[in-house]
Computed example of a mutant assay.
Amino acid sequence: MQKTFIIIPLLLLAGFTARAQFNDTTNYHVVFNGTGTANRAPEGNTYLLNNGLRFEMKKESIALNATNTWVYGKSNGALTNNDYSSSVDFNLYKAIPHAYYWGLANYNTSYSLKINNQLLAGGGIAYSILDKPNAYLNLSDGILYDLSDINTSDTTRELYYTYRNSLRLQMHFVFNNLITIDSGNFWQPSLTRKNDHIIRTNFALGFKITNWLALNSSLTYNRITRTKAENTLLTYGLKLEKFF
């Protein structure tokens, strides 16, 4: 079971955005995240670079989001991460209070998780248990189609597809307009393959400096049981964002 632990962070640029704070006149939101961590020790050197760009558009009845992230790291000269993810998703708001329909298309390739190529696409429904500017708690469920090219061992490569149930718990809290807590948690078991599931969870703590700049720390964990791989990333940094 492969593990990647980043122990000592170097402040560069980071963050996790769970939910944009739109208002009546704000329809667009852009966030850039770039994370760096480093550990220099007699036993060797470790570093990690994490870059992300997210664009959000919200109208009266629909929201559209596009996200790209890239994680690259080495430890003692050996590659530990070369992980890229690109996704487009939308939320469709109808007459049901605090509920909406969602759709998603997501492409991943990950050295640390032994994913050569992965396409996830599907949709479902979400319900907001709390839905206030400073307190947001949302539960969603749906079905995803998973087409993957993975390495199940160092010598075995497998191309397969399956349908997954996608259960997500998402939260966003703001205290005194200065401190933010964000979390997104996914459990995505296969509907046809036993002991085949994906776990993704992240937690972020932010301290607002200005309207467009915040100091953030985040913890992310990913596990793919089919490849018997997982990674854990601890990062510190800054978040740049703009509403317009």
Results as ranks from 00 to 15, higher is better:
134 N>I: 07
15 G>N: 06
58 K>L: 02
28 Y>S: 15
143 I>K: 03
175 F>N: 14
68 N>L: 04
150 I>G: 03
190 S>L: 01
60 E>A: 13
16 F>Y: 10
134 N>S: 12
77 G>I: 07
75 S>A: 00
139 L>N: 07
177 N>A: 04
56 E>V: 07
49 L>Q: 08
56 E>I: 07
49 L>N: 11
159 L>K: 15
11 L>S: 14
76 N>R: 04
74 K>H: 14
31 V>T: 14
189 P>H: 06
69 T>Y: 10
209 I>S: 01
12 L>W: 02
170 Q>S: 15
174 V>W: 00
59 K>W: 05
112 S>I: 06
212 W>R: 14
103 G>C: 08
220 T>M: 14
168 R>P: 03
36 G>M: 11
211 N>P: 05
113 L>T: 14
203 F>Q: 15
70 W>G: 10
200 R>A: 12
62 I>W: 01
198 I>Y: 02
72 Y>M: 07
134 N>Q: 06
79 L>E: 14
231 N>R: 15
122 G>H: 00
65 N>A: 09
96 I>H: 09
170 Q>L: 12
216 N>F: 05
23 N>K: 11
220 T>V: 11
203 F>A: 13
214 A>G: 13
96 I>S: 13
146 D>I: 02
97 P>C: 14
62 I>E: 00
177 N>L: 00
232 T>R: 13
132 K>T: 06
56 E>S: 15
61 S>T: 13
228 K>A: 00
21 Q>C: 07
109 T>P: 04
41 A>R: 12
123 G>M: 05
3 K>C: 05
218 S>K: 08
178 L>V: 08
148 S>N: 03
80 T>V: 08
145 Y>V: 02
64 L>F: 07
94 K>M: 09
238 L>D: 03
20 A>F: 01
84 Y>K: 15
119 L>C: 06
209 I>M: 04
214 A>T: 10
181 I>C: 05
71 V>M: 10
83 D>K: 12
162 T>F: 02
65 N>D: 07
95 A>K: 06
132 K>S: 04
32 F>L: 10
35 T>W: 02
185 N>C: 00
239 K>T: 09
170 Q>P: 09
114 K>T: 08
96 I>E: 13
169 L>S: 13
133 P>V: 00
76 N>E: 06
230 E>K: 09
111 Y>R: 15
132 K>G: 02
109 T>R: 14
128 S>A: 08
14 A>V: 03
33 N>A: 09
96 I>L: 11
202 N>T: 13
178 L>I: 06
112 S>G: 11
231 N>C: 11
181 I>S: 04
58 K>Q: 02
215 L>D: 04
35 T>E: 08
185 N>K: 01
96 I>N: 12
200 R>H: 13
16 F>S: 08
148 S>M: 01
146 D>L: 01
16 F>P: 06
185 N>H: 03
72 Y>A: 10
119 L>E: 05
5 F>N: 14
109 T>G: 15
204 A>Y: 00
86 S>K: 01
